[in-house]
């Protein structure tokens, strides 16, 4: 599996899209029998490399369910999920761990930093599980990633010594460190005040400019509006009224085109 951020010039210059996520008729049922909950119904979705997609919906609509599936933290009950060319169903536990490690960076609402570890040691975790054995290399890269989110000087601080916004930036540095193809963020601003939230969203936009594919999950329209493409989810159903920013290139981020006409991006048919 090839890990790494996709260079912007790979996208769009020849007018060619490279799809990163291909979700086809995916369903997810929690539990069985009487207590079964159909949390996701017949979801189809294609996300190309370099895109910035927001998935928006009210509480209980299945947003997190979708994120767990996209992040290979859970397996679909039905349908097919192809991530970066790999059919997720064919992967075993160890291969899935490798996919999560190399291809995906997670950003959670609750930051999910380990309280006992300093910032840089939180950030180095994906490198550790990725098999980088040299501690100084991990440390250097972790500090570099922290510098990227503007926290290079706080590398030795523990999470309790950082503000919420700073903690989330540490989490983003952790998500970035293995140069994943995809950043999955579930309500990344949900626990932050509006100014820290704006900072985080700005950071996402910068990252996307630099070519990182981002899928952001939120219930807040103000947050969703930052993405270049907006998908809605309700009662486990992804609406197909999504919008693609432009037809020509994913990196073009005209504010007005964010809510443009339906681009037919759902399903593999758009490829």
């Amino acid at each position: 599996m090839v890990a790494g951020r996709v260079a912007p010039e790979r996208l769009g210059l020849e007018g060619e899209r490279v799809s990163l996520i291909e979700l086809t008729h995916v369903g997810k049922v929690y539990g069985t029998g009487d207590v079964a909950v159909q949390a996701l119904k017949d979801a189809s979705l294609t996300v190309d490399q370099g895109e910035y997609v927001a998935i928006m919906g009210p509480s209980g609509s299945g947003k997190s369910t979708l994120m767990y599936l996209l992040g290979c933290l859970d397996v679909p009950t039905s349908g097919r999920y192809i991530l970066n060319g790999n059919d997720v169903r064919s992967l075993d536990e160890i291969e899935l761990a490798a996919v999560r490690n190399h291809e995906i960076g997670f950003v959670f609402q609750q930051f999910n930093l380990l309280a006992s570890l300093e910032a840089w040691r939180n950030v180095e975790l994906p490198l550790l599980y990725g098999g980088e054995r040299r501690r100084h290399v991990r440390r250097d890269q972790a500090i570099e990633a922290l510098e990227r989110v503007g926290l290079g000087h706080r590398y030795h601080h523990r999470p309790v010594e950082l503000s919420g916004g700073e903690q989330q930036r540490v989490a983003i540095a952790r998500a970035l460190i293995n140069r994943p193809a995809l950043i999955l963020a579930d309500e990344p601003t949900g626990s932050l005040d509006s100014s820290s939230g704006t900072e985080i969203l700005q950071l996402f936009e910068e990252l996307n400019e630099a070519g990182v594919t981002i899928v952001l999950i939120t219930h807040d329209p103000g947050v969703g509006s930052h993405a270049k493409r907006l998908l809605k989810i309700r009662d486990g159903r992804l609406s197909n009224s999504d919008a693609r920013p432009t037809m020509g290139g994913a990196t073009v981020a005209a504010q007005g085109s964010r809510r443009g006409p339906a681009g037919g991006a759902l399903g593999a048919s758009s490829l």
């Binding site: 933290l73 490798a98 997670f106």
Partner: peptide, 14 residues
């Protein structure tokens, strides 16, 4: 924490 470590790429063995 275990869930997080797995999300970050920890294998069951790790």
């Amino acid at each position: 924490e275990i869930g997080l470590r797995k999300a970050l790429g920890a294998t069951p063995g790790a």
